[in-house]
Simulated scan of single mutants.
Amino acid sequence: MSSNHRLYAYLNDEFLPLESTYLHVSDLSIQRGYGIFDFFKVQGGHLMFVDDYLNRFFSSALLMGLPVPYSEQELKDILVRLVQMNGIPDAGVKMILTGGYSENGYDPAAPNLILLQQPLTLPSEAQVATGIKIITHEYVRELAAAKTINYLVGIKLIQQVKAKGAHDVLYHHNGLVTEFPRSNFFLVRQDDTVVTPAREVLKGITRKNVLELAAKKYQVVEADVTLEDIATAKEAFMTSTTKRILPIIEIDGKPVGKGAPGAVTLDLLQDLVELENRQVV
């Protein structure tokens, strides 16, 4: 995309140049970090799995007590128009719903709806072939079932992650593994059973797709996962909209399995890419 390509955003019934799209400082997203969002890919101009993402967006809004000012179909129509206006066939789209312009900086008001489209970079072939290293941290997100804008702990830990030569941080509580700040966690047992944490996690759309794909070939389990389970795992990987499936080869300085991307992980990644490509046809 050229540097002079004008991007548009959507704010409360208006399509605006991105550089002219602002919120007032009274918004609760600024005052108190109160709001939700969701994020999906556009591939070949096609809104990928958009119904699933909209369903989660509305569910998050309900959990946070934020009324969405449009129906799912109306919001989808707005998103289609935004993508057409921006003319970026492969990108990411973020939907944000804030607590609104609060009179006292605490009580919610009419929510502000913001829609943004931005260039998207997926993991490189080299990164997939090499795999990533992660660390762990004891923490459980509040309202884990809602995709809120509160990423305080994840952002606070960025420097610690980098200092340890890692890529991301995996949350756990009393040894019970949950999720990454922006991704879901999977492991593969020695018998090729695919397992993902069942509690205190955001139900990712890529997580959902991977579970469905894996169930066609392997035994699949949604259950409690412990740090001890990781120590005996054959493989591990993360899933998200922007990462697809990314192999994990090391956790807290200890190798996962043979310390290299595993066959089950790479097999599921190929299936996921094929599923995404079928959505565009």
Rank of each mutant, 00 (worst) to 15 (best):
N277M: 14
L275E: 13
L213G: 06
Q279I: 01
T232A: 15
F185C: 00
E200Q: 14
D229W: 01
K243H: 15
K234P: 03
T206V: 15
G253I: 10
K216G: 02
S183E: 10
E235A: 08
I251N: 09
P247V: 08
L246W: 09
E212A: 15
T239P: 00
E276R: 12
V210N: 07
F237S: 08
L268N: 07
K258W: 01
K258F: 00
G204E: 10
E276P: 01
L187P: 05
I249Q: 04
L227Q: 05
R182Q: 13
T265I: 07
E222C: 00
Q190I: 09
D191V: 00
D224N: 10
P181R: 08
Y218L: 02
S183A: 11
D192A: 07
T226N: 06
T232F: 11
T265H: 09
T239V: 13
T239K: 02
V280P: 08
V273K: 13
V280N: 05
L269I: 08
A260W: 08
E222S: 03
R244G: 09
P247F: 07
A260I: 13
K258Y: 01
K243Q: 14
I249Y: 03
T196H: 05
P181F: 04
T226A: 05
T242Q: 08
R207D: 13
S240K: 05
T241P: 11
F186A: 03
D191G: 05
S183V: 00
L268A: 02
A231S: 15
K258S: 15
G253N: 12
V256T: 10
E200T: 12
Q270M: 12
E200R: 12
L272V: 03
T226W: 03
V273T: 07
L187K: 02
T196V: 12
F180K: 09
D224L: 03
T206M: 07
A260H: 15
L227S: 06
P261V: 06
P181D: 11
A233P: 10
G257K: 08
A214S: 06
G259R: 14
Q219W: 06
V256E: 05
T178L: 05
R244I: 03
G262S: 10
Y218V: 01
D192P: 01
E228R: 02
Q190L: 10
E222A: 01
E250S: 15
V264N: 04
L275R: 12
Q270L: 14
A198T: 14
F180S: 06
R207E: 14
Q190H: 10
E179N: 01
T232L: 13
V201H: 12
E235M: 14
G204L: 02
V194T: 13
N209S: 14
K254T: 13
V273P: 07
G257Q: 10
V256F: 00
R278F: 00
A263V: 15
V264Q: 04
A214R: 04
V221T: 03
A233H: 01
G253K: 14
P255N: 07
M238K: 09
D252Q: 00
D267I: 02
E222P: 02
A260T: 15
A236E: 01
A198E: 14
P197I: 14
A231G: 04
V264S: 09
Q279K: 07
T265Y: 02
T239L: 04
V194N: 11
G262F: 00
F180P: 04
D192R: 03
R189W: 04
A223Y: 00
M238F: 08
L246Q: 08
D267T: 03
R182E: 13
L227A: 02
R189V: 10
E274Y: 01
